[in-house]
């Protein structure tokens, strides 16, 4: 009898411990406040607005010291707990050999997912019944995300992937596949293959705070799935807008983003 109770207590304890180990993002999230999103006219959680992630993730999503024009920062990776991307050994060698000048962003290519979220500049979320649209200022990149059941476009080689969304309570969950292997995760060369699979979770944490969690899976490059967490802040300045950002060769022959040069 006593041993049965002990076994029960132990199994509950072990399960709790296991959950903590398996899912370190969910665990702290439960102690944080999530505000219920308002509703759109169609009765869906309302995430509409212009948002922007500040920080240095576009430079390096892992923890890094200060560099030229870049502040030091903690890693934005919350799983695993050491904040390091769980690369396969050969992939880590490849990452370490990357050069900054090879960053596809410098050629004015679409940033990819999740990088578009933390590429400098805001993004705007639009909603209509059964769909979410995200327009990123950077190179007028947009994503069409149906939130009603619809099969993925499988086997394509998109820069921004094929995305399908659904709502889990007030959280928008977006599942994306069909990526090419051409985009990077940041400037220092963290990368993925065409087997990239991203699950993003957008949750309103306050009227001006949107939490963004992206779970990254890629069996060709990583030993296990890993997750990053970022905060986007709402722009509420009067007249604030997503600017036009085209990539045009300047007088010196260098490609330049119009939204970054227009000040």
């Amino acid at each position: 009898m006593t041993s049965a109770i002990l076994r029960l207590v132990w199994s509950v304890f072990a399960t709790a411990l296991l959950m903590l180990l398996i899912d370190p993002i969910q665990a702290p999230a439960q102690t944080e406040k999530t505000i219920a999103a308002g509703l759109t006219p169609d009765g869906e959680p309302d995430l509409r607005g212009i948002w922007e992630v500040h920080g240095t993730a576009n430079w390096n999503i892992e923890g890094h010291p200060a560099g030229k024009g870049v502040a030091a920062s903690k890693s934005v990776i919350v799983d695993p707990l050491d904040g390091k991307i769980p690369y396969q050994p050969s992939a880590l060698e490849k990452r370490n050999a990357m050069t900054l000048s090879a960053d596809p962003e410098t050629k004015c290519y679409m940033a990819g997912v999740p990088r578009a979220t933390y590429t400098p500049g805001p993004f705007q979320i639009f909603q209509s019944a059964g769909m979410v649209i995200i327009v990123y200022q950077d190179l007028h990149t947009y994503r069409y995300i149906p939130t009603t059941p619809r099969p993925q476009i499988d086997g394509a080689d998109f820069w921004m992937g094929s995305s399908r969304g659904h709502w889990e309570k007030d959280t928008l969950v977006v599942d994306s596949i069909s990526f090419n292997d051409q985009t990077w995760l940041d400037r220092v060369g963290n990368f993925h293959s065409n087997e990239l699979h991203v699950i993003e979770r957008y949750t309103l944490k306050g009227p001006k705070t949107l939490q963004y969690v992206a779970r990254i899976e890629d069996p060709k490059v990583f030993t296990k799935p890993w997750s990053m967490r970022l905060i986007a802040e709402r722009h509420s300045e009067p007249g604030f807008r997503v600017m036009e950002d085209e990539c045009i060769r300047n007088a010196r022959g260098v490609l330049e983003h119009t939204a970054r040069s227009a000040k």
Binding site: C108, Y109, F158, W159, Q182, C247
Partner: peptide
């Protein structure tokens, strides 16, 4: 669909 143009 994704109309990549400059890309590649």
């Amino acid at each position: 669909l994704e109309g990549a143009c400059r890309e590649g």
